[in-house]
Amino acid sequence: MTKAIFPGTFDPFTVGHYSVVRRALTFIDEIVIGIGINDNKNTHFPIAEREAMIRDLYKDEPCVSVQAYDSLTIDFARQVGANLIIRGIRTVKDFEYEETIADINRKLTGIETILLFTEPELSCVSSTIVRELMGYGKDVSMFLPEGMNTSHE
């Protein structure tokens, strides 16, 4: 059985993230969406709210689970028994960063990283931009997966 983690801050979880999970499920048996706790990031949604939003989105998908973590990604992968890390990349800059991290993770643990290129029509979508638009009261529904409820309390 192939088990992977898909790590990120996911603030918020966008159509780009959704696309990566959907596509990865065609060759991965189980995906744990790992919401990393990163104190260096200025997040919009509290961790519990992000976890609930993503869990609701995948409530009918038994091959996807959601879990927050506060450790190195490779330690989280080992903790949940994952043998792969899935990452999405939008740009050359993303690729260079992800390649470096993937190389380090493989050297430290032997865990491989699979990089999925963003679908071209989604390459402009980033959580940072969506957060900024939300801060100005703009409708961001086109950038969020259908059924994503951002009003968890």
Rank of each mutant, 00 (worst) to 15 (best):
D94P: 05
D75K: 12
R23N: 13
F117L: 15
E99A: 15
I5E: 00
E30T: 08
D56P: 02
K59L: 13
I31E: 02
I129F: 11
F6Q: 03
Y69M: 14
R23T: 10
R106A: 10
L72S: 02
I114W: 05
A77N: 10
A4N: 07
R23M: 02
T118N: 09
V20A: 13
F45P: 00
S141N: 14
P62H: 05
E61T: 14
R90F: 10
M53Q: 02
E132A: 07
I47L: 14
M134S: 06
T150K: 04
I47C: 09
R131A: 08
I85M: 12
G137I: 02
I74E: 09
V125R: 04
I47Q: 10
E132S: 03
T73E: 05
G36K: 08
F27W: 11
S19P: 01
Y136E: 11
Y97G: 05
S126V: 06
A4I: 06
R23P: 02
E98C: 11
G88H: 06
E96F: 00
R87G: 00
M142C: 13
P145A: 06
F6C: 04
G88F: 04
R131F: 04
I37D: 10
P120I: 06
I28A: 03
D29H: 08
E132W: 08
R23S: 11
T100P: 01
G8Q: 04
L116P: 03
K59Y: 03
F143S: 01
N149T: 06
K138T: 02
Y18R: 12
D29G: 12
I86R: 07
E98T: 10
D75Q: 13
D94E: 07
I5W: 00
R55P: 01
K107L: 10
V66M: 05
K107C: 08
D139N: 15
V80W: 09
E119I: 13
L57P: 00
A4F: 04
S151F: 10
I37W: 02
I47T: 13
T43E: 07
A52R: 14
F143V: 04
N105V: 03
S71L: 13
F45L: 01
E132T: 07
L108P: 01
E96S: 08
F13E: 03
G81P: 07
S65P: 04
I33G: 00
T73V: 12
E146F: 08
A102D: 01
T118C: 14
T26N: 14
A52N: 09
L115E: 10
I114C: 12
R90A: 08
S71M: 15
S126I: 10
E119N: 13
P46T: 00
E146W: 09
F117M: 15
A4R: 03
C63S: 15
C124L: 12
A24L: 03
N149L: 03
N42Y: 07
T43H: 01
D29L: 08
I5T: 04
H152F: 11
